[in-house]
């Protein structure tokens, strides 16, 4: 085997390796383990063509999937201090950040964009699980605050797609503080009277679920998504019991009254458009009848109508 692995294989690689072939043409479904051609998978919105399993999507793909045509405008997010604690476990946090940036091509685990969904202007914040498990540190908190403020500025609804294991441990207490900061972002949106919709995707756990993600005016989840506070392993090791079938899955939360609906990815865009349209209620309930000019200009006491 040595000769084959050490000599022949590098040679073959050298011969065929430079043709610009993506290294993963075929994806294995994480649920049924069937192989799916990459184009087929992306055309099917990363839903397994064999078993219907909803796989995780990058933030970029998520934005592209949600917005109309090419209306997407990704905004630049505020700069934050990298590695505020100079955290080091088996690896430096600074190095982990560099690796994640190189791997994903994005600066942190969240992208914020505005655009139109079915002609309705909206702001979307989408998490990218590939970036350190979508974990929430200061940059992500800042992203959510920026998203809320952009939505307020544009008088548009805010839609968030969390996909995150929780708080980013490498930012210590500052990661915990994002639970409060992201909640403040939600309050700002709410106080501005704008809809705040959360689409819970796989996974939404820990500090992310226990803050902005569970505060949606409308809570939607993708089928099969893991949603919960404590990790399944932590619970098992605490209570020494096997967890029930389907525990912490989207359908389980629906059954327990924790979310409004479970919507398959193919229907998600249409559902959101319908919900946004209904919430906005821009069409008046009755036909508008114009008042005669003299009545409109003055009220009963003869005071002039206030300027609007």
């Amino acid at each position: 085997m040595n000769w084959l692995t050490n000599f022949v294989r590098p040679r073959i690689r050298a011969l065929v390796g430079k043709q610009g072939v993506p290294d993963n043409l075929w994806h294995k479904c994480t649920a049924c383990e069937q192989m799916i051609f990459h184009r087929e998978l992306s055309a099917n919105l990363y839903v397994c063509t064999h078993c219907g399993h909803h796989m995780r999507m990058s933030a970029k793909d998520r934005l592209a999937m949600m917005f109309d045509g090419d209306s997407t405008q990704t905004i630049e997010l505020p700069e934050t201090i990298d590695d505020p604690l100079k955290f080091r476990d088996q690896k430096r946090y600074g190095d982990r950040l560099k690796e994640a940036r190189a791997k994903t091509g994005i600066n942190d685990a969240i992208l914020v964009a505005h655009g139109e969904i079915g002609g309705i202007p909206a702001v979307i914040a989408a998490f990218d699980f590939r970036f350190m498990g979508g974990s929430m540190g200061t940059a992500v908190g800042d992203g959510l605050i920026a998203a809320a403020r952009l939505a307020i500025l544009q008088d548009a609804p805010l839609i968030v797609f969390p996909s995150s294991g929780g708080a980013r441990m490498q930012e210590g207490i500052l990661a915990l503080m994002q639970m409060t900061r992201s909640t403040i972002a939600v309050q700002e949106i709410r106080e501005a009277g704008l809809p705040y919709i959360v689409v819970l995707t796989d996974p939404t756990t820990g500090g992310v679920s226990a803050s902005f993600a569970m505060l949606g005016d409308i809570s939607i989840a993708e089928p099969g998504a893991i949603i919960g506070f404590a990790g399944a392993r932590v619970i098992e090791s605490t209570i020494h019991e096997t967890l029930p079938e389907g525990f912490q899955r989207a359908e389980y939360l629906l059954e327990h009254g924790m979310i409004d609906m479970v919507v398959p990815r193919h229907e998600l865009r249409d559902t959101l458009i319908r919900v946004l349209d209904l919430l906005r209620n821009r069409n008046p309930a009755a036909e508008v009848v114009a008042l005669p000019k003299s009545e409109a200009a003055a009220d009963d006491q003869g005071n002039p109508a206030p300027e609007l």
């Binding site: 639970m179 909640t183 679920s209 569970m214 505060l215 919960g228 619970i235 019991e241 327990h256």
Partner: peptide
């Protein structure tokens, strides 16, 4: 971290408590 706590919305309960503080 328990089954019942999760079923009854541990995450949501914490989120609402944070919200109440703010």
């Amino acid at each position: 971290p328990g089954i019942g706590a999760e079923e009854r919305g541990q995450a949501e309960a914490i989120a609402r408590s944070i919200e109440a503080c703010m």
